[in-house]
Write a protein that binds this DNA or RNA. Structure first.
Lengths: 227, 227, 227, 227
DNA sequence: AATGAATGAGATTTCATTCAT
DNA sequence: GATGAATGAAATCTCATTCAT
């Protein structure tokens, strides 16, 4: 065997390693700035600076600000759903347990992290980037609704849950998580929120509310005009 | 009596009437554009155009884009809370009924309307406008939390509700409303949502979940690290 | 004689009087603002406001900002020279006396007043308004130089003054007056200047310096390059 | 030793050389335009164009038009006074000689050059830029008056000059220099002025006028009102 | 005659993107 | 590959001027 300059094989030289890491560094920098200031108000140069490179370098890796944003979104919202699906397929216990598990996990792995802030950005500025909006819709919103919808339905069929309207219930389940995400990433986290406590409370309320053997809410609603 | 040309007295001339209406027209135009595209991505000239005036005219009424935004926010978020307070002070029935009433009303009068969209914008871009963030915090967030917190507490003291952690419960109650607002104003309202049905479902679930005489949720949560 | 509505003949009604006074009021307002802020930095609306009328009214009397400026300049620089000319024609005493008289008068009637400030403006921004520059040159600069030049020459011919180079001496005579005007109207009159004392000193120095029977200054000048 | 392509070491690349030169190029362009048109009437884009760069480039080097102006002023008015001070400290000859030397030098090194035009601009528009006005007052006007005042006083104490009022005499001395500067930079240098001849004449007149052993001016002044 | 709401050309300034080094 | 100087389109805001009332 001949001695090479780089003793260990398959380990790229430092320069190379830097280079390979660049896209990730850029996406991380972009993510944090987008969350802080919004997409439109974030300057390409600031992203580059936070990633420790120069303005020009950003364009070696991404065609522009919009492409960078898409890459960030893709990175953070792709694999998350599939986890959930797998979990549900394997799950053998009660739906209540599964729901607890899913929500807790989702919060820990996704909502609580950077993706939580991204959600805010996508919701606020997605309309200006139609390609991105479609992506988010297809990859995040729809699968989530389908997953939770299926869960609720299974619970109803098995008699574990009362007969509730499914899409609406899903909507209600997601709401507090959204609220948590926004609380952590908006207006300088003004209200100190104890996320685990909120989650616990939410599950407590929801599961109690969903429990079969109960009559429906005692207060019939009356809407003014649009029924 | 002789008929004069101008039949009604004290009617300002057309020019004056236009002038008086301008600020409102501008705020309306600004509101819809801010909600559509976000604050940063909305051009002052577009606001003027949508209001049917030219660029320069906007500046006759508002000192700049930021002042315009503040005016819009103030317009849509001011008096709403005080309604709620008054309602609670007068209310003689159960807290369940009051909660239903408050949430339904709030949705109809505020969330469902333009202010729903504004919420999104403020949450997404408020960090860049500190004065505005403070305003929103003081005028909207804090009063809302206090109002609902007081309601929950009264319910608990009277035995109507279980002993639940108050701030967390408030957080959970607000979540689905937030979700509704974002659904209507983001990503082109892709998922058709039946807001009244969601509200009904939410109240159904929540009130059932809050009802006293129940043991707490059967599923104990386990959080990975941060307890 | 028939009784008329307005009892006194040839006195226009109040409304009329206002109207006749307008151009003057506008020129006065313009003058003071031009001197304060410069021509370019003065807004037409501010001129109108200081004159106590509205923006539109200005344009009833002057075709625009530039025409207004010309009118102001014409007003303040026209008749001043002819005074001087007449004075010189009539004068029978020494040229020293005449020089004292002319400078003192000019300072009192022109330099010290608003025209002093105007000079600054014309010198600073006249280049951008060629018509005005020509006017000032023809009506102010040239006549002044000719008048003072003739005075000096008469003094030399009569033996009252030494043989000094005429145009240069005129330049020197004018300098301190210019300095006085700028001192009063620039940089917020920072250095408190006692104008009469300066004038007295100037005349004292100059007349002593001009007196015949003296040898020229003892210090021969040497200029570096351009002889 | 092998000859390399780039013969001289430590020569920055062309790009760098351009960069280093830019601020100077911009200040030069700004100076000439400010003098030509005044500060307010000069457009930032024209400055950039005259410097051979685009609008945006200007802002890479200066934060705005006002900062650019300040930089220009600082560049041209800083070290000039200190020269004069040093000269006076060292000088051993007569005050007449020193005065000749100072004025001639000042004209050659400062007044005659670009700074002469700047003076006009600062006097005309300094009021709108208070920071700048202060700078000019502190760095130019006050030191000049102090320097010349000290000179005159020394001359009086040594018996070389008559007893003249000091600040007023300084004012008179400065006047013609100011006039020279304005002549060269205003109204398109209409009157051809022979600056060295004017200076010579000024010094001739002044020094004669200051000479001791003379009685004061024969013509007593009478001011109309304000004594 | 007088007003002042409205206009839009034009000024300053910012920033995504390019490209010579 | 990396840089950062340079660009110029586009955004915000100003103000001379017009014109309906």
């Amino acid at each position: 065997m001949r001695a090479t300059k780089t003793s260990t094989p398959n380990v790229p030289p430092a320069r190379q390693r830097r280079k390979d890491a660049r896209p990730q560094e850029l996406r991380d920098a972009a993510l944090s700035l987008f969350v802080e200031k919004g997409y439109a108000a974030t300057r390409a140069e600031d992203v580059a600076a936070r990633a420790g490179v120069s303005k020009g370098t950003l364009y070696l890796y991404y065609a522009g600000k919009e492409e960078l944003f898409q890459a960030v979104v893709r990175e953070h919202f792709s694999a998350t759903i599939h986890d959930g699906m797998a979990l549900m397929d394997e799950h053998r216990g009660s739906m209540s347990e599964l729901l607890s598990l899913l929500m807790t996990r989702w919060w820990e792995r996704v909502g609580q992290g950077p993706a939580g802030g991204l959600t805010k950005v996508v919701l606020a500025e997605g309309r200006n980037l139609p390609e991105l909006a479609q992506l988010y819709l297809d990859e995040v919103i729809r699968p989530t609704h389908e997953l939770l919808g299926a869960l609720i339905e299974r619970g109803i069929r098995s008699g574990e849950f009362r007969a509730v309207p499914v899409p609406e219930t899903v909507h209600v389940l997601i709401g507090p998580l959204l609220h948590l995400m926004l609380s952590e990433h908006s207006l300088g986290h003004c209200l100190a929120v104890d996320a685990p406590a909120v989650l616990r409370t939410q599950l407590d309320l929801m599961l109690n509310g969903l429990k079969s053997g109960l009559k429906s809410s005692a207060v019939p609603l009356k809407f003014s005009k649009k029924p």
